[in-house]
Write a protein that binds this DNA or RNA. Structure first.
Length: 445
RNA sequence: UCGACAGUAGCUCAAUGGUGGAGCAUUCGGCUGUUAACCGAAGGGUUACAGGUUCAAGUCCUGUCUGUCGAGCCA
C-alpha cells in the first residue's frame, strides 16, 4: 500500500493509495459522502459510496468532525466533472482522533478571533499558501547568496548597546553585566564579517520595541543583511536589483498555485525585472513638488502643511506613495540628506550633506522593503559621527577597529523578510506573513 | 504615544429611544455527484464594563477596557 501526499496524487491514477491527514470539510447526500482531506501538501476530495463500503466505514465517516485526524485508503480517480482534478474513491478509513468541535469554520471570521487561534488558523489553505511562499523566498535568498559567493554569518541577538542608536530596544538583565538589548540589526557585526570573509550575509530575527500599530510593522521580524567589502553604493544597488529580480522570478516559477489561491495579480510581479528605476533624493523631491505633496508637521494645535516639500526632510507614507505610483517596479531612492540618516553611512565625497544611502520602495504601495548604504570607512569621520550622535564611544571601539586595520569601502543592505512576503503575497496585514506574529498588543499564542 | 471607527448568540452581522433577530456552527431528521452543498426542526443572550439622561437605553451622554485602521518610527 502506497502512502502518498496529496500534491503527488496525479502520479497514482487508478492505483490504491493511503493518505494520512485531517478532515477539512465533509458534505453528505444520503447515501454518498464527500469528505475533503488535507495533508499539508494539498486538499483532495474523497468519495464514500454507502453501497460500496462496509457499514463500519460508513459509520466512521458519519462520526467525523472537522479537523479529525484520519488515514484513508482508496483508489485515485479523475474527477467526473473537473478537468485535471483528482479524487479518492474511499474504501477504508482509520480514525486517529475525532476532533472536538473546531472553532474555525469554513465561514468568515474576524482578525482578532483568528489571531487568538493562530495555531489553528495556520491550517487554512490561505495561510498554508503564504507560508509556502515565505519558505520559497527564504530558500531563494539562501541559494542566491550561496551561489554568489556570500558566506552565512550569524550575528548575536544579545547586544550591549543600541546598534544604530535610534529606535527603542527590548532590554533584559544579563547576569551581573547590567542590561543587554535584543538586536535590532546584525549590520555592525556583519561589517566585521565582511572584513574577514569578503561577502557575508546574516539572516535572523530582529527586535524593535516601537509601539507601531500598522499593517507593516512587527516587534519581532526576520531580516536578511548582506555586507560586502569593496562595494560602493552603486555596486550595492546593482546587487539589490539582481537579487530582487531573482527572488521574485523564482517565487513566480515555483509558487504559481499559491499566488493564484491568494488572488495575487501575478502580471505585476512578472514585471519585476532589471533595470529598476534609480532616483536620487533630489529627484524624488522634484516629484513631490510637481505633485504638490506637502510636508506635514505636527504642531501644538494640530498639523501644519509645508510646501514646497523642503530639502532635508525624511519621507512619510504619502510621499513614498506619490513617488512609487508612477512606476511598476521597485524604486531605489538614493543619496539622502545625511541628517535624516544613520551615523554609519558614508557621506558623498562631492557633497558632505549627502549620505550614500538607498531605500527600496516596493510597488503597489507596499512601502519600504530594503534600506541600505555605503558605510563610513574613514576612522576619523566615523569617530566624529559616533560622538555627534552621543553614542557610547567605548562600546564602538571594536567597530572603529574595522577602520583602523585595513579599512576598505564597503556596503550592504537590510531586507525585511515579512515585508517581502507582504508584497509578493499582496497581504493586507504583515501579521499573516509570519507563523506567529509579535506586535505591541500580542505575544500569544 | 496621537487620531478616527468599532464592541449584540460559539462565529459573521441586523435591530426609528418602545417585546433583541438572521445566516453559519452545534444536536436531531431528510436527500446517490456534493463544492463555504441543500431542505426541515431544536437548543443557544448580564447587548465589553461602570455610571448618567429618560416613563422607557443595544440605541443618547461620560469614563474605563479591548480591538481595527491611520499617523509617527522603521525593515
Amino acid at each position: 500500500m502506497q502512502r502518498v501526499s496529496v500534491s503527488k496524487i496525479s502520479d497514482y491514477t487508478d492505483q490504491e493509495v493511503t493518505i494520512n491527514g485531517w478532515l477539512y470539510n465533509i458534505r453528505s447526500s444520503g447515501k454518498l459522502m464527500f469528505p475533503e482531506i488535507r495533508d499539508g501538501s494539498g486538499i483532495i476530495q474523497g468519495v464514500v459510496v454507502k453501497s460500496a463500503v462496509s457499514e463500519r466505514v460508513w459509520e466512521d465517516f458519519s462520526k467525523l468532525t472537522q479537523e479529525s485526524s484520519i488515514k484513508v485508503k482508496g483508489t485515485v480517480s479523475k474527477h467526473p466533472k473537473k478537468e485535471g482534478v483528482f479524487e479518492l474513491q474511499i474504501n477504508d478509513v482509520e480514525i486517529i482522533q475525532i476532533a472536538e468541535p473546531y472553532p474555525i469554520t469554513p465561514k468568515e471570521h474576524g482578525v482578532e478571533f483568528l489571531m487568538d487561534r493562530r495555531h489553528l488558523w495556520l491550517r487554512s489553505p490561505r495561510q498554508v499558501s503564504i507560508l509556502r511562499v515565505r519558505n520559497e523566498i527564504i530558500q531563494t535568498i539562501r541559494d542566491y547568496m550561496y551561489d554568489n559567493g556570500f558566506i552565512l554569518f550569524d550575528t548575536p541577538i544579545f547586544t550591549p548597546n543600541a546598534c544604530e542608536g535610534t529606535s527603542t530596544l527590548f532590554s533584559t538583565e544579563y547576569f551581573d553585566m547590567g542590561k543587554a538589548y535584543l538586536s535590532q540589526s546584525g549590520q555592525l557585526y556583519a561589517e566585521a564579517g565582511a572584513m574577514a570573509l569578503g561577502k557575508v550575509y546574516t539572516l535572523g530575527p530582529t527586535f524593535r520595541a516601537e509601539n507601531s500599530m500598522t499593517r507593516r510593522h512587527l516587534t519581532e521580524f526576520w531580516m536578511m543583511e548582506p555586507e560586502m567589502a569593496f562595494y560602493d553604493i552603486d555596486d550595492d544597488m546593482d546587487l539589490i536589483e539582481d537579487f530582487l529580480e531573482n527572488v521574485v522570478q523564482r517565487v513566480l516559477k515555483n509558487c504559481r498555485k499559491e499566488l493564484e489561491l491568494l488572488g495575487r495579480n501575478v502580471s505585476k510581479l512578472e514585471n519585476v525585472k532589471k533595470p529598476f528605476p534609480r532616483i536620487t533624493y533630489d529627484e524624488a523631491i522634484e516629484i513631490l513638488i510637481k505633485k504638490d505633496i506637502p510636508l506635514i508637521r505636527k504642531t501644538s494645535n494640530g498639523e501644519e502643511q509645508i510646501r514646497p516639500f523642503p530639502w532635508g526632510e525624511d519621507f512619510g507614507a504619502p510621499h513614498e506613495e506619490a513617488i512609487v505610483e508612477d512606476f511598476d517596479k521597485p524604486v531605489m531612492v538614493h543619496r539622502w540628506p545625511a541628517e535624516a540618516k544613520s551615523f554609519y553611512m558614508k557621506r558623498d565625497p562631492s557633497n558632505p550633506k549627502i549620505a550614500l544611502g538607498v531605500d527600496v520602495l516596493a510597488p503597489e504601495g507596499f512601502g519600504e522593503i530594503i534600506g541600505g548604504s555605503q558605510r563610513e570607512d574613514n576612522f576619523a569621520e566615523l569617530e566624529k559621527r559616533i560622538i555627534e550622535h552621543q553614542l557610547p564611544l567605548e562600546e564602538f571601539q571594536w567597530f572603529l577597529d574595522l577602520r583602523r586595520y585595513g579599512s576598505v569601502p564597503h556596503s550592504g543592505f537590510g531586507l525585511g523578510i515579512e515585508r517581502m512576503v507582504n508584497w509578493i503575497c499582496n497581504l493586507e496585514n504583515i501579521r499573516e506573513a509570519i507563523p506567529f506574529a509579535r506586535r505591541p498588543n500580542r505575544i500569544t499564542p
